[in-house]
Design a protein around this nucleic acid. Structure first.
Length: 429
RNA sequence: GGAGAGGUGGCCGAGCGGCUUAAGGCAACGGUUUGCUAAACCGUCGUAGGGGCUCUACCUCUACCGGGGGUUCAAAUCCCCCCCUCUCCGCCA
């Protein structure tokens, strides 16, 4: 959520931010009209309430001091004012919900303002490659897709997963299941060693939490909701982690906060029909280690660079070739002012695929969740950052694909050996 | 799930229809005192949204005592619904 005062004082800035994203700049004008109306009615309402309060006090004074005065007449006057107040309150609350209600309000439909350093462009081709790491595996080899490798080795079973739950689920078995667990432990250990605090949050979140994070109301169709209950399965640990200090005032010396969590993530993948239908690239449930930072506003962009490096460390240790992309304005998420994606190499597809997305949401989420910190006795919103560190399902798939050898065995990166009881390769059991 | 007790500012805690502008304390901040620290004393000290203006100041209004609704001229205070915490009981990985 943007600051309404910023929109009032600098509507052009917000209009151009919307245009850069391919969003509708007229939203600003609709909001400003509504805001003007709101303020005018609020003023009227406040005046009426003042009058009511004054006269009610008068009545109280007359009664307690047994002073002279026509109490009955006054009561009638105030009763009339009270009626007007009620009517006006109705109007104000209608407008307020169009303006600022978390579920329906216009203010909540305006995305974050892209940072100056974000490349302009609506097409995916406008994204800028920042750097590459690792050498791509050679050609002259038929690189199998991970789902075939997994099936051959007997460690990945899509068919039985479909029986148990449906399409877009996986069952991992034997070393496959163990590998998932090893990856989670490895990533958490790495991030904890780098200063992050490990958190184990609920995998279910309520409406307030998802609204503060920006998933509701706009992206409700991407979530799994528990039937008849105001609960949702989390789509990422970003949701609970950025909400950990919601509606709290932190002391400035508590910042920065570095948090990491390994949770299951649940996504309905509505609208993704036909995309990545095979394998574990796009599934309804996957494990992910998430990184979240809550930082002082002055440092957030430097903190973003550091966070990207923290995610890169995972891929480097796992010896997976990747590239870092800076997303253009049109590709930015709703909350984000600047986002880097990490894309890992999938030899069977001959392309890089997203495995991590690291964003600086500036004060956008903090304002929405009323997370604040106190600095020299004034209250400020911290900046929140989130990044995958990294998605485990896709990592597992990438390890299977990139580690393929001619004899059908899979090479495991040395960083994982200690997590797999010394196992150095996967072979058919 | 059942019974009971409770939820008040950063924290503790009083208030239970009008004298609350939420007492008092702690913490914090500023000052006096002091060789320094501490103590003592004085002062400041919630959040949000408006309006005014000589516009980082200052003045002023409104709202907020877990959330929502209601009663009343007037609600932290009375009534209803919901949420959360604690204690006991039941069930349970």
């Amino acid at each position: 959520m943007l600051d309404i005062k910023l929109i009032r004082s600098n509507p052009d800035l917000v209009r151009s931010a919307l245009a850069k994203r391919g969003d509708d700049p007229a939203k600003v004008d609709r909001l400003m009209a509504l805001d003007g109306e709101f303020r005018q009615l609020q003023q009227q309402l406040d005046n009426l309430r003042q009058e009511r309060n004054d006269r009610s006090k008068q009545i109280g004074a007359i009664k307690t001091e047994r002073a002279m005065g026509d109490v009955v007449a006054l009561q009638e006057v105030v009763a009339e004012i009270a009626k007007q107040i009620k009517a006006l309150e109705q109007q104000v609350s209608t407008i307020e919900s169009e303006r600022k209600n978390p579920r329906t309000g216009l203010l909540f439909q305006i995305p974050n303002i892209p940072d100056e350093s974000v490349p302009l462009g609506l097409a995916e081709s406008a994204n800028v490659e920042i750097r590459r790491w690792g050498t791509l595996p050679s050609n002259g080899f038929i690189w199998l897709p991970h789902e075939e490798i997994g099936a051959n080795l007997g460690i990945l079973d899509m068919n039985r997963a479909a029986k148990l739950a449906g399409t877009r689920f996986v069952v991992l078995k034997g070393i496959g299941a163990r590998l998932e667990r090893a990856l989670g432990n490895f990533m958490l250990d790495l991030h904890v060693a780098n200063g992050y605090t490990e958190v184990l949050p609920p995998a279910i979140a309520n409406e307030e939490t998802l609204t503060a994070n920006g998933n509701l109301p706009k992206f409700q169709d991407q979530l799994f909701k528990l039937e008849g209950l105001p609960y949702y399965l989390i789509p990422t640990a970003e949701v609970p982690l950025t909400n950990l200090y919601r509606e709290e005032i932190l002391e400035a010396d508590k910042l920065p906060l570095y948090l990491t969590a390994y949770t299951p993530c649940f996504r309905s993948e509505a609208g993704a029909a036909g995309k990545d239908t095979k394998g574990m690239i796009r599934v309804h449930q996957f494990g992910k280690v998430e990184l979240v930072k809550i930082v002082h506003p002055d440092n957030s962009f430097a903190e973003l660079e550091a966070m990207v490096e923290d995610a890169e460390r995972v891929l480097q240790a796992l010896e997976l070739p990747y590239r870092v992309m800076l997303l253009a304005t049109g590709d930015l998420g709703f909350n984000s002012a600047k986002t880097y994606d990490l894309e890992v190499w999938f030899p069977s597809q001959g392309k890089y695929r997203e495995i991590s997305s690291c964003s600086n949401c500036t004060d956008f989420q903090a304002r929405r969740g009323q997370t604040r910190f106190r600095e020299n006795s004034t209250l400020r919103f911290p900046h929140t950052l989130n990044g995958s560190g990294v998605a485990i399902g896709r990592t597992l798939a990438a390890i299977l694909e990139n580690g393929q050898r001619a004899d059908g065995t899979i090479k495991l990166p040395a960083a994982l050996w200690p997590y797999l009881g010394g196992l150095r390769e996967i072979r058919k059991e």
